[in-house]
Design a protein around this nucleic acid. Structure first.
Length: 267
DNA sequence: ACCTAAACCTGGGCGC
DNA sequence: TGCGCCCAGGTTTAGG
């Protein structure tokens, strides 16, 4: 699933490729994933693509824009003719240069939504979400941890507390920090909170450098796989062993999501 | 107010 | 081979 590193990879590619392009044609194949009137977008010029957490914002010169979320299986791919006839291609945006942007999504959880004032919409979403792991200090994070009775696994996946962390980086980050996912967030010390923060930054930076995790359906805007899945520390390793101590990893659902950890190394 | 669980979807993997 | 079941998990919403 696209988490912050995957979404940021796509953002950079879309921004580079589509900045300055003008939309000449819109094809919506599935209404569920497209909110708005697509004909309004003909003639719009793309100014920039920004990102907040896992949300993408396509800005037009007019002030309008599209807010996009890939959720579980969404892909934004440029110029790959395979998507012309692919079963799950939901939206096709054609540019004046002839380039095409395909929105493909098997499960249709994701969406593209037209906004009249995209800047206002981005601000609204930014205010709803917490800071990204690089934009918060351990003292402030600990303050948030103290206010809740939930497990740490649950809390770091909460976008209102920290934005951009999904299940892959949550599992790997907790392993790296040596913290047991069952711990109550409110029981953590300042030192432990600091460890979680630096671990999350480390695994997400690694995700960014490797182009994201493609163990699922994720592909970048060029249709290429990332490589973080080759370096998973715990995520999805149901029969795997701890990279550090060699003991078998434990698997259990926490907060309704798959969680893998080492009973010995994570206390 | 806080927390949990269901809902949204589809394809893939498994056991039989 | 094929059927039925479970699983994946980001975000919103309903309910306790």
């Amino acid at each position: 699933m696209p988490e912050l590193p995957e979404v940021e990879t796509i953002r950079g590619q879309l921004d580079k490729e589509l900045r300055g392009e003008e939309i000449v044609e819109m094809e919506v194949r599935d209404r569920k994933v497209f909110v708005g009137e697509e004909q309004e977008l003909i003639g719009e010029k793309i100014k920039q693509i920004t990102r907040v957490g896992k949300y993408l914002f396509m800005y037009f010169e007019s002030g309008k824009g599209i807010v996009m979320h890939l959720k579980m299986t969404g892909r934004l791919v440029i110029n790959d003719t395979w998507y012309e006839t692919a079963k799950h291609t939901r939206v096709i945006i054609t540019m004046k240069s002839g380039r095409k942007l395909y929105y493909w999504d098997t499960r249709k959880f994701g969406y593209l939504r037209v906004e009249n004032e995209i800047g206002v919409e981005e601000k609204k979403i930014r205010e709803k979400l917490g800071p990204e792991p690089w934009k918060i200090e351990k003292e402030a994070l600990l303050g948030k941890f103290k206010k809740t009775g939930r497990t740490i696994k649950d809390v770091i996946l909460d976008q209102r507390i920290i934005a951009g962390v999904g299940n892959i980086y949550a599992n790997d980050g907790l392993w790296k920090s040596g913290i047991n996912p069952h711990r109550k967030a409110s029981s953590l010390t300042l030192t432990e909170t600091g460890k979680i923060l630096t671990s999350l930054r480390t695994v997400m930076e690694r995700g960014l450098r490797t182009g994201g995790a493609s163990d699922n359906s994720y592909l970048d805007a060029y249709g290429k796989k990332g490589h973080y899945q080759e370096e998973f520390l715990t995520y999805g390793k149901t029969k795997g062993e701890c990279v550090k101590c060699g003991r078998k990893l434990t698997r259990e659902k926490i907060g309704g999501r798959g969680t893998w950890w080492c009973e010995y190394c994570q206390r």
